[in-house]
Structure formats: C-alpha cells, structure tokens
Amino acid sequence: MVLIKGRQVVADSWRHLDDSDPLPATGAVTISWERWTVERGTIARPRAQLGLRIPNTVTTAVIGADADHCGLIAVAFPNFGDGRAFSQARVLRSQYGFRGEIRATGNVLRDQLQFMERCGIDAFEVPERALTEDWLAAFSEFDLFYQPAADSRPWIARQRAGRN
C-alpha cells in the first residue's frame, strides 16, 4: 500500500487501530466508525490525533455532525462501481466545511483519482503498482471542468464569462 497526499507519495503518519486495539494515550490514530459510535463519550483527543474510518453507508448528515471531532476521515470505495463516497467527501467539504484530511481507501483506481480529488479527497491509499504505472499523472489528465465541485478550480462556464 502506498499513500499519495498532495499529489506526492508520502509516509503514513497515522496508525490504524483495530477495534480491539487499546487506544494509545497520544499519537494520531484512526478508528472505525462503529467503535466511534460506541466509545465516543469516552474519547477525548485533540482533533489532529483522531481519524474516523467511515463506511460508505453512513449518511453525510450523520458524519457531518461529528466531523468537528477529527482531523482525518477515511472514506471507503469497496469496489469501482460504488460511488457513494464521492458524495460523502463532497458534502463534508462543501456543506460541513471539513478541513482535515479526507482519505480514499479500498479499491482506489487510477482513473477515478481526479474525480476523487475534485470531490475534496486529498489523500489516496493506492496499490504498489501505482509507482510503476505513473498514477500521479492521472491528477492532471484534465485541466478543464464543466462544473463546480469541492475544489477551488475554475469551471468552464465561469471561464467563458471571464470570471475565474
């Protein structure tokens, strides 16, 4: 597994706990959404040290309400066709103003990277072969877009009107 963040390959500074792992006193950790819903009352951690791994079946309204507590939200792409996490990420950014890391996990595909990035996902867990197959190039396959999204890039209707 390789982590891409900010369009670069980086080391993962987060520890991903199983539900049975004890919660360390300090350090950046992610826990499952289920664990969070059970233990949330007892977890007191600075935002920068808490990440939530959410299944794509939790509605954005529910996650959005808790987004304030954490510095990372890992969204899930269980298979290529299941695009629910695109909406989760988009809503977290656009409607809840979530500023932390949104990380794509699961079956993350090269040809979806740019869509994911436009929806506000900024970190990507990708397979090793991403390194040999130049997945970073996928982020810049398009430099024109027909619609606004969760990124700050201009879109064509605006560019036409001379308003970037």
Partner: peptide
Amino acid sequence: RQWSTLHPEFSWL
C-alpha cells in the same frame, strides 16, 4: 450536457 459531462460526484451512480 455540459454540467453532467464527467461530473466528478455522479459518474459512479
């Protein structure tokens, strides 16, 4: 047509 073309959120419905 333009809005829906390669819509990043709605391409995997």
